[in-house]
Design a protein around this nucleic acid. Structure first.
Lengths: 119, 119
DNA sequence: ATATATTGGTACCTAATAGTAACCTATCAG
DNA sequence: CTGATAGGTTACTATTAGGTACCAATATAT
């Protein structure tokens, strides 16, 4: 089978939709440096709600991008860790973060000049 | 200023949200090979609605990633072309498409084994 | 005993967004 | 005067995101 995300019903289209998500990019970026607990991720990703974080983590787990391990401590401790598939995805996603940081100034200038053109 | 997309109010967070979008990824991917008309983009991106396409294109234009040129033919013809900023972003996004195509099989297997674990 | 804090979730509700379909403008061909 | 065409916009609906509250289970403090 040859995959083609430009075709609406190709599974790669849906997969692309899954991975092109800010929370996915940020979560994978953090897990790059090793396993992390739920509460650590929540603290380090400023502005993410518990709901969105657990939802994002479950989807990533379902797709084989990370593993979830719960330890029977009290209260329960849960650790998330990238799989090798997840690490390979992160190689593709990390450049997005870098690009945003490197080009924020240029984008801001473009927005200003677009605003002026309207006036 | 040092940018940090892990901070909720940093402009790079909002920018990351803008660019991590399936339509953005697909549109930029197509424009890589040269300027294209609205109707061509619509035809080549199976399943995109006119609304989402024009919305996506306008946002990309506002952010300086592409230019829009309208020719006074009848009916009007509109051409979209990547800017150099857009081309630099596409370098960061294209690997996502490649990753999705290259790893679809692995993801499907992971989904199956996740399903089995529930049963 | 009772109150309080903790971790990692889920349930519920509302706000925002994506998608769908119809309509619009201008002009030319038949 | 009917229809077609390119590139939209508008109005409406369905889906999703996000916020808040709540939960279990136990440890510590009161």
């Amino acid at each position: 089978m040859k995959w083609n995300p430009y075709a609406a019903r190709c599974p790669t289209r849906q997969l692309l939709d899954c991975i092109s998500d800010k929370w996915v990019v940020l979560v994978l970026g953090l897990l790059e440096s090793g396993p992390k607990r739920f509460s650590v991720l929540k603290r380090e990703i400023d502005g993410i709600s518990q709901k969105m974080l657990s939802q994002t983590l479950r989807t990533l787990e379902q797709n084989g991008l990370l593993t979830r391990r719960a330890f029977p401590t009290v209260p329960v401790t849960v650790e998330y860790e990238l799989t090798s598939l997840g690490r390979s995805l992160n190689l593709a996603l990390a450049p997005m973060i870098d690009w945003a940081v490197a080009n924020m100034n240029r984008v801001q200038k473009a927005r200003e000049s677009y605003g002026k053109r309207l006036a």
